[in-house]
Design a protein around this nucleic acid. Structure first.
Lengths: 348, 348
DNA sequence: TTGTAGGCGTTATCAT
DNA sequence: ATGATAACGCCTACAA
């Protein structure tokens, strides 16, 4: 692509490159007339500083790398949206990488990001990542890293996550309060952080109401695999009276499976998912949801990372930042009044 | 971030930088022993060439810029997915920019992309862009540009779009063949290319079956504005017997509005949208859809752009590439047999 | 087989 | 007030 450089301007105006540079950078002591000449010429020929040369000189790229399991996903695309908003407002660009839920690809991708000279890394771990030494090494080499959503406690950085525990607790409690007691939980792979947090929230709610935890009511599915029917079948064998699913995809898959089996959803099942889709209103019955604050998570993560890059210590880091979730109740078929929670009972 | 350079290796091994460079690049005539030494050292200290320095030298960044109206959008995130797949496989990275449906931001964003030294640009125009001189200028300066989805005939490049005409035609024809005659069309802003193509497909189908075109059955909505209810109301005044909507968002909004008004959708309205969501099965009644080949459009666009960047003339360019759409019929309530198409009648 | 020098675009430092 | 020079990391003629 045809571009004009400082050199071109210098040649055209019979000046040295340093003078031109000074004129453009609005530096001290420069002849106003010279400056006018230079800026006018630059304007006219649409001069733009070569950011690559600048990066080389300043040893930084003003680019932050974002690594997500996949882009074409409601949650992550919203998070990226939040990341971009903050990044752009602070003068950074965003390069996006996908790990495709693969540990190997995550490693390769992180390498590429580093080779690309990103100033920092924003990562949501792939579902098959348990070992994070590839990230710890980079940290040791002083690369700023912030994790979001799918985090690992083995890494000593800032984490930004949704309040998965609280969200799952609220969802489960809502189901209990509308009279369900055998709440099936259809969830994602057990070895990622959010799964465990959500399970803990689910169990805590059961415990609060004195409902025994039955692990046969839990089914773990893989990502990428769209066929949730067998898992739903396995859960149906346990005669549940509600479903609590851990994602949009699972919620939709679950509803589809129930519909296919002509199980009268409105009467027997309340379904709550972590979701962002506005279609929840249109399903029959409407699906209550726990909304993931994807945008805010992205914004917060970006802000933390850029602070770290620019050496602004926020005081409390490295630490964990939790963004609240919001529950939207859409199910209308209440059954019995809520049983009195056992724990509160005994503490009163 | 701590990094090792060729210089460091040269110093450590008492060699010149050029020798090290040659050794690493597997260049001709080099002492095998020296080479071994260098590669081993590089391996051990995890040497990675500085891509910024390379970009400066080679005067190209191996980055392609993608400008979309918004990322957090099913369609565009899938398209980006396709773009990335191709780009990465051919050694390019992707920087994503959002125009937020604003002409001004699109211009600013294009400038940033250029300043960032992208090797080429992949653009889906903002809905408020009618003038494309900002792009034509760049083209004149030899920047490879490929448009996808939202294109403009005022620009002399490769376009990649879905078969909007064909998709709209198929949708409308399907509605006609299931007995509808007053088909409302709820669509997006009139001044973007895809709107016109879809409208043309709609009209062509009406014409084929001798149904008069009634412009009161057409309503244009803005992007970003989630409230489609007034538009649905305006259409309902025309007592339509079907809806053909131009996007997911409109389809969902339309269904929601109908539901709110307790209009018995299953009996009176078939709704067909351009969509990608798998929830269509779960709506009542299930919504037939014309699927947008977002992934393929992204892939094709990226391929075209990279060919252009690398100077591989594909022979036929600049031209228009159309990716077929696929219709999925989910509506089950057939009414009357299809009326015999007038045009075919007269031509037989 | 290896080293030297120059250049990609920019800016900071040190002359003049 | 302006110019010359060096440096960021890498590669490649050209020289040795």
């Amino acid at each position: 692509m045809d571009t004009i450089t400082i050199k071109d301007i210098a040649r055209a105006l019979n000046l040295s490159t340093s003078t031109v540079s000074r004129a453009l950078r609005d530096s001290y002591e420069i002849n106003p007339e010279t400056k006018r000449l230079v800026t006018e010429y630059a304007e006219r020929f649409n001069y733009r500083p070569n950011s690559i040369a600048l990066s080389l000189k300043e040893n930084r790229s003003r680019v932050i790398g974002v690594i997500v399991p996949q882009i074409a996903n409601n949650y992550f695309s919203q998070a990226i949206n939040g990341i971009e908003a903050i990044a752009y407002s602070r003068g950074y660009y965003v390069i996006i990488f996908q790990s495709h839920e693969s540990y190997e690809r995550e490693i390769a991708t992180v390498q590429q990001a580093v080779a690309r000279k990103v100033d920092g890394l924003l990562i949501s771990l792939s579902s098959s990542t348990s070992d994070v030494t590839h990230l710890r090494e980079l940290q040791d080499r002083k690369l700023p890293i912030v994790l979001f959503d799918r985090v690992s406690k083995d890494l000593d950085t800032t984490f930004v996550t949704a309040d998965n525990f609280g969200g799952a607790f609220a969802a489960t409690e809502h189901l209990i309060q509308t009279g369900r007691r055998r709440i099936a939980h259809l969830t994602i792979p057990p070895y990622i952080s959010i799964t465990q947090e959500r399970l803990a929230g689910y169990r805590a709610a059961l415990e609060k109401y004195g409902i025994p935890y039955d692990e046969k009511l839990i089914q773990y599915t893989e990502f990428g695999q769209n066929d949730v029917e067998p898992f739903v079948d396995a859960l149906l064998d346990q005669s549940p009276d509600a479903f609590f699913t851990a994602s949009d995809r699972l919620a939709i898959g679950c509803l589809a499976a129930l519909k296919k089996r002509a199980i009268s959803i409105p009467e027997t099942v309340s379904l709550i998912g972590f979701t962002n889709t506005p279609v929840a209103d249109l399903l029959a019955p409407p699906m209550s949801t726990v909304e993931q604050p994807a945008l805010e998570i992205g914004q917060m993560a970006a802000e933390q990372l850029i602070n770290q890059i620019e050496g602004k210590q926020t005081g409390t880091q490295p630490g964990r930042i939790t963004i609240p979730t919001r529950m939207i109740v859409r199910a209308s078929s209440e059954r019995t009044p809520a049983p009195h929670p056992l724990r509160e009972q005994s503490s009163l």
